[in-house]
């Protein structure tokens, strides 16, 4: 495998469960050393996609290649290339931490001597030294999550797949996990899924938003914001008629448009949300223009910094529109099944 070839290639992946399509025609690639974030509402198909990537579940159709090897035909080799931490991080209740890591290392075909050194290293890295002789079932969630992460990176595989690694952690522990994942950048290809959007935004090089089994948006967090929400967004609190506002906006900049407005509160003020394609800041111009006009009473103007949360909501809403659109009628004659 050459340096530049992608670590993971997924093309037209489909997975059906008893008539329900969990994953519908997903395609994406992940470059070597890249950290990819998987976002999506519950039941979007994130975990299913991850399970297919690990070779645990077979796909209904489509192709998945990891480091140039097909998951469907070379499953045994794929398992040597992957470190996987499933959703909810299942761990045996009645084993000690170091014992568990040793057992997992042996299953991952690591040598005894090498394993001892590596376990010490990982216990240090994941801050687990204090609990190395404790029984896993008696540890708190934070420790358990870190054991799961330590286990996933134990054999130093080229690809790490983690399903919601930060779920149920406190902010301090999230920071530790984020640093831990950050340290893997460049060395290992990492896919993580999460509901915590700032988490993904800070950790990942690229984001893939999935909804109802389809990819609805993909790209770098900053590029995604631009693509889905426009380049910049403004919020203005004022008393005004929307038609008047729209007329004034065209004067300031033709690309400015109202994306949403709410109903007036008891004082008559309402919030208009605007978006534009330009990077330059219009806040001052907007404030001056509206303040100078007698038709408007302005209370606040602000430039909104869109979060990934906005991107996520906008992207998933967009896909619902797509999914809910009435389907075209099928052709009179069905194509023969192959």
């Amino acid at each position: 495998m050459s340096e530049s070839s992608p670590a993971i290639t997924v093309s037209s992946l489909v997975k059906n469960y008893a008539g329900v399509t969990a994953v519908s025609n997903i395609s994406f690639t992940v470059a070597q050393g890249e950290i990819l974030g998987f976002l999506g509402p519950n039941g979007a198909g994130k975990s299913t996609t991850m399970r297919i990537l690990t070779g645990f579940l077979p796909a209904t159709s489509g192709q998945v290649e990891i480091c140039g090897k097909s998951v469907a035909t070379q499953t045994a080799e794929i398992k040597r290339l992957i470190g996987y931490m499933p959703e909810n991080n299942p761990l045996p209740e009645d084993m000690r931490v170091s014992e568990y890591l040793y057992y997992r290392g042996r299953l991952k075909e690591m040598g005894r001597r090498q394993l001892g050194v590596r376990i010490d290293e990982l216990l240090e890295l994941c801050d687990l030294k204090r609990v190395r002789h404790r029984i896993i079932g008696k540890l708190s969630k934070g420790f358990r999550q870190r054991i799961g992460i330590a286990e996933a990176i134990l054999a130093e595989p080229p690809v790490i797949i983690m399903d919601e690694p930060t779920i149920g952690l406190d902010p301090h522990q999230i920071l530790i996990v984020r640093e831990l994942i950050g340290r893997l950048r460049g060395r290992m290809t990492v896919i993580i899924s999460s509901h915590i959007l700032p988490e993904i935004e800070q950790t990942c090089d690229r984001v893939l938003i999935i909804n109802q089994g389809r990819v609805v948006a993909a790209g770098e967090p900053a590029a995604l914001k631009r693509e889905i929400l426009g380049r910049a967004r403004y919020t203005i609190d004022m008393i005004a008629e929307s038609a008047d506002v729209a007329a004034v906006l065209v004067e300031v900049d033709p690309s400015l448009e109202i994306t949403s407005e709410n109903t007036p509160d008891e004082t008559g003020f309402r919030t208009f949300e605007l978006s534009t394609d330009h990077e330059s800041d219009f806040s001052e111009q907007l404030l001056q223009r509206f303040a100078a006009d007698e038709r408007f009473r302005v209370r606040a103007v602000g430039r909104a910094q869109p979060t990934l949360e906005d991107v996520f909501l906008a992207a998933t809403r967009r896909s619902w529109d797509v999914v809910d659109r009435p389907k075209p009628k099928p052709a009179a004659t069905d194509a023969p099944k192959t």
Binding site: R51, T54, K79, R80, P86, P90, L91, R104, K108
Partner: peptide, 14 residues
């Protein structure tokens, strides 16, 4: 029940 079968079967064992 615990789900550890999933972690077990994603290592190189059959």
């Amino acid at each position: 029940r615990l789900g550890t079968l999933e972690t077990l079967l994603t290592t190189p064992i059959s």
